[in-house]
Nucleic acid binder design. Structure first.
Length: 332
DNA sequence: TAACTAACCTGGGGGC
DNA sequence: TGCCCCCAGGTTAGTT
């Protein structure tokens, strides 16, 4: 299940390969993988063919590739990709091998690396590709994370400032910045969290509050911060919020360093290799095993049509808020 | 307006 | 061996 670290691994793998390359042809094998593409923008393949890819950006779990040339009256555009639960973006040598469940193929011509394919493979079709217009960001900061290469101005596509400009695809604009984004505003996040009258895990999964966190890393961060998933977000003190955010960053950063989490073939990098973070999980999928901290068997509980993994001793269920005393009855 | 729920989707695994 | 059912979960439209 691709979350922020997995998507970032894909972005980092794609960026040097596609930046400065031209899309020469597009093949769509399953129209359902275009569910986020609006026909009002134009035909998906026609919008892409002949366009140059300027770079590879990411906000949370959304990836996008700003496009150069012939933007037309609609202004700057980008190819937006979301991996959903089972999406993969694979770099392939033409004709060498076929990927099962292939939904979309981009034929790419790079001035240095020559011709190759970008295959979008998706088993459950929760993922998608779309061409979307770029709109200005609300805070005037770059739309997302474009990596160290482009940020330092050394990318092959860095001549075109459209790649890293303060623009974001319109369908990504409502998504909050992720905690690894240099422009992530901690004060804004803490204030928004303090207004949420809901459980802390539901808040962490709310991509309009903080993006990039899914079920796996929410469970891991809550275990690390010793917080029960139902702990009311608005009852967290600032120090506890800071502690939780630090654990979120630690978990995401560690997973990123290990190439992401893979349980099966559902998540792979652009070369088809799996990540190693599943060996480092403390809570997610560890039900029945002893808590690495206190030895109490970890449990799995139903939560939001999915599951939550926690230590029943380290992560105590919050007590119900004390009832407000009823006003005294008027004296008679 | 905020919080919450259900639907989308399909390969794999378990039970019979 | 084959069939059926359940499970996984990110996003979003619809409901409360």
């Amino acid at each position: 299940m691709p979350e922020l670290p997995e998507v970032e691994v894909v972005r980092a793998g794609l960026s040097p390969a596609v930046s400065g390359a031209v899309i020469t042809a597009v093949e769509v094998f399953d129209e359902r993988s275009l569910k986020r593409h609006s026909p009002l923008e134009g035909a998906f393949d026609a919008l892409l063919e002949g366009r140059t890819i300027l770079g590879a950006g990411r906000r949370g779990k959304f990836l996008w590739f700003p496009l150069g040339d012939s933007a037309g009256p609609a202004g700057a555009q980008a190819l937006v990709t979301h991996l959903g639960m089972s999406g993969q973006v694979l770099l392939r040598t033409p004709g060498v091998e076929e990927d099962g469940l292939l939904r979309i193929r981009l034929h790419i011509e790079h001035p240095v690396q020559g011709e190759f394919w970008v295959n979008f493979v998706d088993q459950r079709i929760f993922g998608s590709m779309a061409v979307d217009r770029l709109v200005p960001t609300a805070d005037g900061q770059p739309g997302g994370y474009f990596g160290e290469v482009l940020a330092s101005g050394a990318s092959a596509a860095s001549d075109d400032s459209a790649a890293s400009a303060a623009l974001v695809p319109s369908q990504v604009a409502h998504i909050a910045r992720d905690p690894l984004d240099p422009a992530f505003d901690e004060a804004l996040f803490f204030a928004a969290l303090g207004r949420k009258r809901t459980g802390i895990k539901r808040a962490l999964l709310d991509q309009t509050l903080i993006s990039g966190i899914g079920n796996i890393y929410a469970d891991e961060a809550l275990w690390a911060a010793r917080l029960h998933y139902e702990h009311p977000a608005d009852r967290l003190t600032r120090p506890r919020m800071r502690e939780l955010l630090a654990e979120v960053r630690l978990v995401l950063g560690k997973a990123l360093a290990e190439g992401g989490t893979s349980f099966d073939a559902q998540y792979v990098n652009v070369n088809g290799a799996s990540g190693c973070f599943s060996h480092s999980l403390n809570a997610y999928g560890q039900q029945g095993k002893p808590c690495p901290r206190c030895g109490t068997p970890l449990v799995r509980e139903a939560f939001m049509n999915r599951s939550s993994h926690l230590c029943p001793r380290c992560q105590r269920r919050p007590r119900a808020p004390r009832a407000t005393p009823a006003p005294a009855p008027p004296a008679t």
